[in-house]
């Protein structure tokens, strides 16, 4: 397995006047293609902050982030948006679906922005993705008509819309019951196992985290354990 994402002394320091908060502290980390990784740690330890850096939603104050060997620190906002659109898929604790659009249209949003496919092909692909997460029959409903578990599946389908190389999920099961949480987690695992996507999931649910192939542990912004599951 090849290294597709690498951080070098990655730090994110927040400075507001005299107040200085270190969100991410000098992290060196490598993710390989097809790897399913959990990022764990206590609340406030900097898991989300690290994930946003990896996902190019935030910029480091020090260090570098290499994606497929390319440095990202010099990229413009437009270029970073372009990489997110093409190669990244995000899932958050809350689904963030657009309430005015149907489920199907929501899944098509990233495809429309990319604009590579025709309308018909997009619709077909969106249906396939919804079928893959098990809610094809909900395609023409509005998000408000769906249950929490169903909405999170739509969010996963949307994250997959442009067939991204990476999936970044921040507490994707945080608002779900155990049954739904397990189902969503299995979906994410399948993406890595069957499609070779690099999947990184932030979670404080140690039970779920133990199901991943690799478990990172953070404390106070630092990476204190790099491969907990294998060691175990």
């Amino acid at each position: 397995m090849s290294i597709v994402l690498e951080t070098i002394n990655l730090s994110r320091i927040l400075q507001e006047g005299d107040l200085k908060v270190t969100l991410v502290d000098n992290i060196n980390l490598q993710l390989a293609s097809g790897e399913f990784t959990a990022i764990t740690g206590p609340s406030g330890s900097g898991k989300s902050s690290l994930l946003y850096l990896l996902g190019l939603l935030d910029s480091p104050t020090q260090g570098d982030l290499l994606i497929n060997g390319q440095s990202t620190t010099q990229l413009s906002e437009e270029e970073r948006a372009w990489i997110r659109l093409n190669s990244f898929g995000f899932v958050f604790q809350f689904h963030f679906l657009l309430a005015e659009l149907t489920v199907l249209e929501n899944v098509m949003v990233p495809m429309r922005q990319l604009g590579k496919l025709t309308r018909q092909v997009m619709g077909k692909r969106a249906l396939e993705l919804l079928a893959a997460v098990g809610i094809a029959d909900q395609s023409y409903k509005r998000p408000a008509q769906l249950s929490g578990g169903q909405r999170q599946r739509v969010a996963i389908a949307r994250a997959l819309a442009n067939d991204p190389q990476f999936i970044f999920a921040d507490e994707p099961t945080g608002a779900l019951d155990t049954k739904n949480a397990n189902a969503v987690f299995d979906l994410l695992a399948g993406l890595a196992r069957d499609q070779g996507k690099t999947v990184a999931v932030v979670t404080h649910d140690e039970n779920l985290a133990s199901k991943t192939w690799r478990r990172l542990r953070m404390e106070d912004g630092r990476l204190i354990d790099n491969n907990l599951n294998k060691a175990a």
């Binding site: 996902g55 437009e78 948006a81 372009w82 997110r84 093409n86 963030f96 949003v109 990233p110 990319l114």
Partner: peptide, 11 residues
């Protein structure tokens, strides 16, 4: 919505 669209890759 704006936040999610930004994360999806709208500039």
């Amino acid at each position: 919505d704006i936040a999610i669209l930004r994360s999806i890759g709208l500039n």
